[in-house]
Simulated assay, not measured.
Amino acid sequence: MTDNAKRLVRLQDVQALLASGTLGDNLHSHAELAKRLVGATSCSVMLLNSESPDDLRMRLCASAGELPPGAAEAQVASGEGICGQVLANGRALLVEDIACSEFAGLARRGCAALPALMSAPVRIDGRLVGVVNVTGAAFSESELHLLEVMALFIGKSVQVIQLQHLLASRFAQMALVREAHERGQDSAAPGTAYQNPEDVARILARSFYKEMTRAGFAPGQIVSAATELIGQLKGTLQEGARGAS
């Protein structure tokens, strides 16, 4: 197959993604498509999801292909490792041979079998929210450009997924609008811009507490509500553990 024919097939795959109407359905499917488009052996999508806004870290959110040991539990800060450097400078990276590059000491696994690596920043409304990485035997500049295009789609997918969840919850919408109003921000922004999931969780918790206080609930009753929330979470975690065993 000629290079032009390969490019056409790849463009048809991207067209199928856009035409299917499933842009925000499954980040894992996007990781699989990115892996196939660039001829990679593995692909990982890491997004910022921090407990503290002063210590932002990326965690694995989706993947395709075999990943190195510990990848699922890894937390990477801006500037740490290869993908952390891509997050820090906001520029896509192509490494033709990791072992012979300045990044040799940063590779998470041996470089002999999979010497090549590419990494591209994921953005939402111009804001860096993560990185998509692929590894393989060899890559070219054209494949790097394809990965950058997929990074754009992944960013939009994250935004669509979050907006779908927020639109399904009137309580979440009201809490975000109220938070924006208290901060003197545009009240329309929370519904259209990306929100860090950890920030949203804290905003909802504060709103939940304020609403119960305004409604006249006593401290003991608010504690009971929090205990019920923890109980529901415990049940969900137990069901997940049984399903995984």
Rank of each mutant, 00 (worst) to 15 (best):
A5F: 06
K6D: 03
R7G: 00
L8R: 12
L11V: 11
L11Q: 14
Q12P: 02
Q12K: 12
Q15M: 09
A16F: 06
D25F: 09
H28R: 08
H28L: 00
H28S: 14
E32T: 13
A34F: 02
M46S: 10
N49M: 13
E66I: 15
G70L: 00
Q75C: 06
A92L: 04
D97F: 06
D97P: 05
C100M: 14
A107Y: 14
R108D: 00
R109K: 09
L114F: 08
M118L: 10
S119F: 04
R127W: 00
V129E: 04
G130E: 01
V132E: 02
V134Q: 02
T135W: 00
S142F: 05
L144S: 03
L147T: 00
A151Y: 02
I161K: 04
L163P: 01
L163K: 13
Q164S: 09
S169G: 04
A172M: 03
A172E: 01
A175H: 10
A175G: 10
L176N: 05
E179Q: 15
A180W: 12
G184N: 13
G184W: 14
D186L: 15
D186S: 15
S187D: 00
P190I: 14
T192D: 08
T192G: 05
I203E: 08
I222Y: 03
T227R: 15
L233A: 10
G240N: 14
G240Y: 10
R242H: 08
G243Y: 08
A244T: 13
